[in-house]
Amino acid sequence: MDLSSNNFSGPLPKDQWFKNLASMIFRGPLTSLVMDHGVPDSFEAYKYTTSITYKGHDTEFAQILTTLVFIDLSNNAFSGGIPEAIGELGLLHGLNISHNSLTGTIPSQLGHLRQLEALDLSSNQLSGKIPQELASLDFLTTLNLSDNKLVGSIPESAHFSTFSNSSFIGNDGLCGPPLSKECINRTLPNVVPHPHHWKKSTDIMLFLFAGLGFGIGFAVAIVVAWGIPIRKRF
């Protein structure tokens, strides 16, 4: 679905509208691999073609595979928040809502898009923190959250750390890697000692005290044993 580079304004469609995109939620077993339009009373079919911005590049598709599920709403004047229902489009591979006037926070439901490969929410007015759920999207190779009003620390994960500084610039309130700005008053997680470790530490302390006591007692015994003959001589 490509509605990019128009003059659309107002809020994005309500949640129920996105829930009606059934082919982005479930793919039927008889679905063709290539999008086409069959000619009535004929065995011929027209193949659809398109040119979209995918993973940050203008890409032309001579044939559109039905496995490529993509939404491009960029370069418009959409306002309001990002609908949470987008998180139910489990087959979505790419989502581009950049260069609009969207406000509010990034829905944590986007973390349910396990097949998402490209996410571009740049050049909006999104605020709040980056949801930790986005750090678990293992197939995400292109991420652009730049030029918003996001705050807080960037989620940490082995996969999320592969994104460059350009994915987050233009958010004065963000901090942490890969940005050079460090987070102030970063709280470390409270580590509760495990009972087994506590018992092991206690055993070590008892062993040290027992050893120290044995050593002192042994030294005193030697001193006493050598001291008695000396007194008898005198």
Results as ranks from 00 to 15, higher is better:
Leu102Met: 01
Thr103Asn: 06
Gln63Lys: 06
Ser98Gln: 02
Pro40Leu: 05
His99Leu: 12
Thr103Ala: 07
Tyr46Leu: 13
Thr50Cys: 04
Thr50Arg: 01
Asp41Glu: 11
Leu68Tyr: 10
Gly87Tyr: 10
Leu89Thr: 06
Gly81Gln: 06
Gly56Asn: 07
Gln63His: 07
Asp41Thr: 09
Gly80Asp: 14
Glu88Val: 07
Thr50Asn: 03
Thr103Phe: 08
Gly94Leu: 03
Ser42Thr: 04
Thr67Ile: 11
Leu102Asp: 06
Phe43Trp: 00
Lys47Ala: 06
Gly56Arg: 03
His93Val: 06
Leu89Lys: 09
Gly38Ala: 15
Ala85Phe: 11
Gly81Ser: 14
Pro83His: 01
Lys55Cys: 09
Ser42Met: 05
Asp41Ile: 11
Gly38Asn: 12
Thr67Gln: 14
Asp72Ile: 13
Leu68Gly: 05
Thr66Lys: 03
Leu65Glu: 06
Lys55Ile: 03
Leu95His: 03
Tyr46Arg: 09
Phe61Val: 13
Asn76Arg: 05
Lys55Arg: 14
Asp36Arg: 09
Thr49Ser: 14
Gly104Glu: 00
Leu89Gly: 10
Leu102His: 00
Thr67Ala: 13
Gly38Trp: 08
Ile86Asn: 04
Leu95Gly: 07
Phe78Asn: 09
Ser101Arg: 15
Asp41Pro: 08
Phe43Tyr: 08
Phe43Cys: 05
Gln63Arg: 09
Thr66Val: 08
Leu91Asp: 07
Gly81Pro: 00
Ser51Glu: 09
Pro40Val: 00
Ala45Trp: 02
Val39Glu: 02
Gln63Asn: 04
Thr105Ala: 07
Phe70Val: 04
Gly38Tyr: 07
Leu65His: 14
Asp72Thr: 12
Gly56Ala: 00
Lys47Ser: 05
Lys47Glu: 10
Thr53Asp: 12
Ile86Lys: 04
Leu68Trp: 13
Asn100Tyr: 04
Thr105Ile: 05
Gly87Ile: 09
Val39Ala: 01
Tyr46Met: 10
Asn96Leu: 07
Asp72Phe: 12
Ala62Pro: 11
Leu65Ser: 09
Leu73Val: 02
Leu92Asn: 07
Asp36Trp: 03
Glu44Met: 00
Ser98Met: 01
Gln63Glu: 14
His57Trp: 09
Ile52Met: 10
Phe43Ala: 02
Glu84Tyr: 14
Gly87Phe: 08
Tyr54Cys: 06
